[in-house]
């Protein structure tokens, strides 16, 4: 992991109104807990020795999903230049967990922060060819200007936070 993409990633995230929180495998849980507003939902994280606290419901029903204040999921990778994260949805429910809650907390491994769109599409193409059914390039919270002024939080989250596992 070189420092440069992370620095760019952080400033790009800031530009789209997203806070970057740095942590490590050991500190993950203690970093995440203060970021949670309950009720919280989520999808199991794919990182070894990193798991979600019990307060995060990983098998929610429709009502729990819609009532959720926080949704925690992994993001496949980040794009430094744009401040984007890639949400790969599957049977574990990353898609609903990242979409319905007021705030989406996306967990990204430091080594998965890619410099730009070129590098991202190389990786996306590889993933899609090996059957990744979904890749959402998500940049900032959902937004709309359709009601006469810019509003953050349209059908998706009002707020997004990226938690970076610096040692992964």
């Amino acid at each position: 992991m070189s420092a440069e993409p992370i620095t760019t990633f952080e400033s790009s995230l800031e530009e789209v109104g997203v806070e970057l929180v740095r942590t490590s495998t050991d500190q993950f849980e203690s970093t995440l807990i203060p970021l949670l507003s309950t009720p919280a939902v989520g999808a199991p994280l794919p990182f070894e020795n990193v798991s979600l606290p019990d307060a995060v419901e990983t098998d929610p029903g429709v009502e729990e999903l819609e009532a959720a204040k926080t949704g925690v999921t992994a993001a496949g990778y980040g794009i430094a230049e744009y401040g984007s994260v890639i949400i790969q949805g599957g049977p574990d429910g990353e898609e609903p967990a990242s979409l319905y809650a007021d705030e989406h907390v996306a967990v990204v491994a430091g080594s998965d922060v890619l410099p730009d769109m070129d590098a991202t599409f190389d990786r996306l193409a590889e993933d899609i060819r090996s059957d990744a059914g979904q890749a959402i390039i998500a940049t900032g919270p959902s937004a709309t200007a359709d009601m006469g002024a810019l509003v953050k939080g349209a059908h998706g989250p009002v707020e997004v936070t990226v938690v970076l596992l610096e040692d992964r």
């Binding site: 599957g90 429910g93 898609e95 899609i128 940049t139």
Partner: peptide, 12 residues
């Protein structure tokens, strides 16, 4: 905000 790349049918 979202550039969604779906390769359906999706399994979410």
């Amino acid at each position: 905000s979202y550039v969604s790349l779906f390769t359906p049918p999706g399994d979410s």
